[in-house]
Design a binder for these strands. Structure first.
Lengths: 213, 213
DNA sequence: AAGTTCAAACTAGCATACAAGTATCAGCAA
DNA sequence: TTGCTGATACTTGTATGCTAGTTTGAACTT
């Protein structure tokens, strides 16, 4: 049975995906009326979906006026990268403590290795898998609150965080780092592994910071 | 002008406060009908407030059945403490980078020093100031996303995190650590300061973990 | 022609009505 | 007495109507 309340969830995800895919561009308006027409439902579920999007930082609501897709600045990206760095460092530490199985992680890395970086489609796959890897790290931690916090962290950033290194060379370096992270995880070396994980992510943060000009 | 939409905000905060004050005990039901009667409004704003409470982890909504105040387990407290540790460590590092002024922090610590731990009221004040200190650390970082993330981190935990050390002895130790944190902050020693901040918070996390029996 | 004003149209906030799923409890059977 | 069943009352989910704030643009003034 698809529960009835799933309608809101569905609208939420659909709008969010369209924002992530840039079908709704930053600054564009999200009208309750037109959206309810699009989804063949009343304004109520649309309204609740928009409220959630606002909560999660995708949308800005101006009272009595309208809802607009939020524009993220480079500074926002930097801030998100900062928080992500720390959340994922925590995830790594917890995974060491819990002695998680690394085979699922290895599987993802293997799949990433098989991607041909001269094929745009596979570059996309590579990026998706890359995100999967990091998400899996958080999921495996067994800390639900950490996972929720991570998921809420405006995933707009995926594009910028992970669609960056497109070249075969970039792939090799990224993968080397990922393998090393897994090595530390296998050895349950929380201290050094966390340091490495931190550096892996913080570098990207610094890139945002520098590019502010 | 008090904007009209403030109604939802007001209901949200009121219910949240009542949950924090234990006026609504964990497991108890939050009926849209009775709440809308309490607040002399329709179900719509109440509904949106409850949806926000659900998002923020205070309430569990069972479809077509009802909303209930979430019961937090010791494990939840541990998980929250873990995430807080890392978020505040980040805050400390950013404050070092930004070379923030430490006087507001000192002021809070001074006020804490003046609390008489034999007077229950002042113990309460001490706890509030304690939370203020940590919140200020996050606010000063200038990372809005970090602040939002921190604020959402179910503040139920305050009671357990900060109402713990009630004795004069506990106060002294806590304050010593806080002063040391400020010293590191003043010296802009991100590396060692962050380590100390981490230890300061992680100890509490370990206390939760141990007490699981 | 440019700026201002005011009214009309549009937007979301809120109230209310109805639909549909869930829980409860009385009545019955074993 | 205990366990089951079914009807009823109650809950939230969704639709819709009305209100009030916001925006827009055309007419008017300067």
């Amino acid at each position: 049975m698809a529960t009835r309340t799933a309608i809101i969830e569905q609208i939420y995800e659909d709008i969010r995906d369209k924002i992530l895919k840039n079908e709704y561009t930053p600054g564009s308006k999200l009208s309750e009326n037109s959206l309810s027409a699009d989804y063949h439902c009343s304004r109520t579920p649309v309204r609740e979906a928009i409220k959630r999007l606002e909560q999660d930082g995708f949308v800005t609501v101006l009272p009595q006026s309208g809802s607009y897709v939020k524009e993220l600045t480079l500074k926002d990206y930097q801030h998100i990268a900062e928080v992500r760095t720390y959340l994922e460092s925590l995830a790594f530490r917890l995974n060491c403590e819990n002695e998680v199985d690394i085979t699922p992680f290895s599987a993802i890395l293997d799949a990433m290795d098989r991607c041909d970086m001269d094929n745009p489609n596979e570059v996309m796959t590579f990026s998706d898998l890359h995100f999967q890897f990091h998400l899996e790290m958080v999921k495996a931690s067994g800390n639900e609150i950490l996972l929720t916090t991570f998921n809420r962290l405006n995933l707009n950033t995926n594009s910028l965080l992970f669609y960056q290194r497109l070249s075969t060379q970039g792939k090799v370096q990224t993968q080397e780092e990922h393998r090393k992270i897994l090595e530390f995880l296998e050895k349950r070396d929380a201290t050094r592994g966390e340091k490495f994980m931190f550096a892996h992510l913080w570098r990207k943060r610094n890139a945002y910071k520098r590019s502010r000009v």
